[in-house]
């Protein structure tokens, strides 16, 4: 099984939106390598013909009656927001300079 490099961990952190520090990268790279080597044993099981299980309870879609029922009020929904303005979530800019 391939080991995981410091650069790969930095890439994972970018994908996962984690601004990890250089020091953390050193620590995590070593630890993730150890963990991945340990869990890679799942590959030892010959399981070509085995169906995957994603869920313990085999359920298909569960529907409810299509009727209106109360939800959160706008005030309730915004109450925990880091910033709100004019009854909406206020967020930092979502487009870059070049866009």
């Amino acid at each position: 099984m391939p080991s995981i490099s410091r650069d790969e961990v930095a890439h994972l952190a970018r994908l996962a939106r984690l601004a990890v520090t250089e020091e953390e990268l050193d620590t995590f790279a070593g630890q993730l390598d150890v963990i991945l080597r340990s869990v890679a044993s799942v590959g030892e099981v010959a399981a070509e013909e085995i169906p995957p299980t994603s869920h313990a309870v085999p359920l298909t879609n569960v529907f409810r009656d299509d009727v209106v029922r109360p939800g959160l009020t706008r005030e309730q929904a915004l109450a925990g927001a880091p910033a709100a303005e004019d009854g909406r979530f206020r967020v930092p800019r979502i487009l870059g300079e070049e866009q």
Partner: peptide
């Protein structure tokens, strides 16, 4: 396939 997919198959075998 090698990690998540294989783990899901192990899940079937454990069951």
């Amino acid at each position: 396939d090698a990690y998540y997919g294989q783990a899901q198959k192990v899940r079937t075998l454990v069951t």
